Amino acid sequence: MADLQDEFDTTAEAGELDRLPADAPGAEAAEPEPGARLGEVPDKARALLAAHPVADGYSGLPWALRGLPYCDLESGDSCLETDVPRLRAGGVGAQFWSLHVPEEIAGDRAVSATLEQLDLVRHVVTRYGDALRLARDASEAADARNHGRVATVVGPASARAIGDSLGALRSLHALGLSVLTLADTSWAGGAGLSAFGEEVVREMNRLGVLADLSGAPEETARRVLSVSRAPVLFTRSGARALREHPANLSDDLLAAVGAAKGLCLVPLSAEQTGTSVRDVVSHLEHVRRVAGPECVGIAGTYDTTAAHPAELDDASCYPRLVAELLGQGWSDAEIGALTWGNVQRALRGADFTARAARERREASTATITRLDG
């Protein structure tokens, strides 16, 4: 971790600071900016993103950064799918940074891996403070956007990260965690949501931590939808009616998400939503029709192992997706809700629920031994 942080703080190469800005007289012709390869994108698409930037519901950047000996997010000179130039070219206003923990990492190692990534996220956001800003709720995300920064929302993290401890959940929230994936534990897994799992959801509501259910068994997902008083997220789920995939949702579950005013974030993943921009739009339209227009959003899934649809290769490519939506007859208001408004609604809902819950109950002292025996 220390070595990687040192690399983020490495001083400029000799002569780097002497280079002229690209628009200065006498400067050499610059390389095409990210997104330029997309061809003719209507000005209206870019204008819409200026007014309603993308709130990207899932980025794998923290785990990707762990494996790099060096990275400069400002120059765009990296093997990553996300950096500052790409975020700006893509009209991104907020990103959820996943604290991914592989399935083979369990117990204390899962907790430490999550903490290391959270520490790295805070370091990176501080290092690139002119472009990024941590945000816990809707007002902080809007404030970051209004100051020209990309709001960085921490999460989702695996439920294994709390180690069956509500105290650990509170500690992670104090460090900035905003989303927790309720899957792959004894209390939220194949057997459904246990009594302790229900108490975890109630404590998340009290804290303002959003529940993510992508990858959770349907029985668990339905119980969380019932128990949670805050909006529930599916951070990377398409429509199973269009493409069979374990993380995609059935129409019955999509309807339940809509009834609970949750949010399904459709991933830009070739495996889950198809190999073309039009395939992605089909999923967005299906989720909008079944769950409702306020219950659909976008998850880039950039810097994960996912392959992406053609012309949606990295975080600079959102104008291409918006152009396709315009071509398919989406209105400005519908696109604005998809890209920004619906995520803001979920964040506001979590904050409102937390304020109300804290007036009714103290921090829970429940333990998994006491509730699940």
Rank of each mutant, 00 (worst) to 15 (best):
Q5Y: 14
T11Y: 13
E16F: 12
L17H: 15
G26I: 10
A27D: 11
P34E: 05
L38C: 10
G39N: 12
E40T: 13
V41F: 10
V41H: 02
K44T: 11
A45D: 10
L48M: 11
A50K: 13
D56H: 09
G60D: 05
C71D: 09
C79A: 10
L80P: 04
V84C: 11
R88S: 12
G91L: 04
V92S: 09
V92I: 13
G93R: 00
A94C: 07
Q95I: 13
W97T: 09
V101M: 02
L115Q: 10
E116S: 13
L118Y: 05
R133P: 06
A141G: 02
V153C: 07
A157P: 03
A159V: 02
I162E: 01
L169I: 07
L169K: 01
H173M: 03
V179G: 00
T185N: 02
G189M: 01
G192K: 06
E198M: 12
R202T: 09
E203Y: 05
N205D: 15
L207R: 06
L210Q: 03
D212Q: 11
L213F: 03
V224Q: 01
S226K: 10
S228Q: 07
R229L: 13
R229H: 14
R229Q: 14
L233H: 05
A241K: 14
D252N: 12
G258H: 07
G258Q: 08
A260W: 04
C264S: 15
V266F: 03
A270M: 14
Q272T: 06
R278S: 14
D279V: 06
H286Y: 07
V290I: 11
C295I: 05
V296M: 07
G300W: 00
S316G: 05
R320D: 02
R320I: 08
L321Y: 04
L326N: 04
D332R: 10
E334M: 06
Q344T: 10
A346Y: 02
L347W: 02
T353G: 09
R355Y: 07
R358P: 03
R358T: 04
R361F: 10
E362V: 14
A363K: 11
T367R: 01
G373M: 10
